[in-house]
Simulated assay, not measured.
Amino acid sequence: MKTGIISLLLIFVVATTSFGQTEDTMKTFDPAFAHTVYFWFKNPDNKADRAKFESSLKTFLKNSKYAKTNFIGTPPKAIRDVVDGSFTYSLIVTFESPEAQEGYQNEEAHLIFIEECKDLWEKVIVYDSNGI
């Protein structure tokens, strides 16, 4: 009986440490300032364009000195009339302050991303929000 309990406990520990979040991988959403960007591509079904965008965006976010957390998304199949699924990608980035977001706008990593990908999109809309 003891062996069964120990085995079960060992399986639980391995599963939670292998598949759960750790301090190294967990990021906390910073509610001070959110920067939400929607991108509409000229050729939204072009796999090469999508791969280039995703690679460049991930490199940029990895190298950003200002972005605290980020989320890259694509639109799900909308099931409600109020959901706008017309965009190709969305990006949500959080910052510790509006000043940090301003620094992000002018940092080299951000400018390289724009230069690499600006020909891919036909429209970009940005929504910035201060936390309350």
Rank of each mutant, 00 (worst) to 15 (best):
T3A: 08
T3I: 14
I5P: 00
L8G: 01
L9R: 00
L9I: 06
I11M: 13
A15G: 04
S18L: 06
S18I: 01
Q21D: 11
Q21F: 07
Q21M: 07
T22I: 03
D24P: 03
T25F: 12
M26C: 10
H35W: 09
H35V: 11
V37D: 06
F39A: 07
W40S: 13
K42M: 10
K42A: 15
P44G: 13
P44W: 12
P44K: 04
R50P: 06
R50Q: 14
K52R: 09
K52G: 05
E54G: 12
L57F: 14
K58F: 06
F60L: 12
L61I: 15
S64A: 15
S64C: 15
Y66M: 13
Y66D: 05
K68G: 09
T69A: 10
T69I: 05
T69W: 01
T69S: 10
N70M: 07
I72V: 14
T74W: 00
P76T: 09
I79Q: 12
D84E: 07
Y89H: 14
S90C: 07
I92P: 02
T94H: 04
T94D: 13
T94K: 02
Q101D: 07
Y104P: 02
Q105K: 02
N106R: 12
E107R: 10
E108T: 14
A109C: 08
H110M: 07
F113P: 01
I114C: 01
E115A: 14
E115W: 01
E116S: 14
E116H: 06
C117V: 09
L120S: 05
W121Y: 15
K123G: 05
K123C: 09
V124Y: 06
V126F: 05
V126G: 04
N130F: 12
N130H: 13
G131H: 02
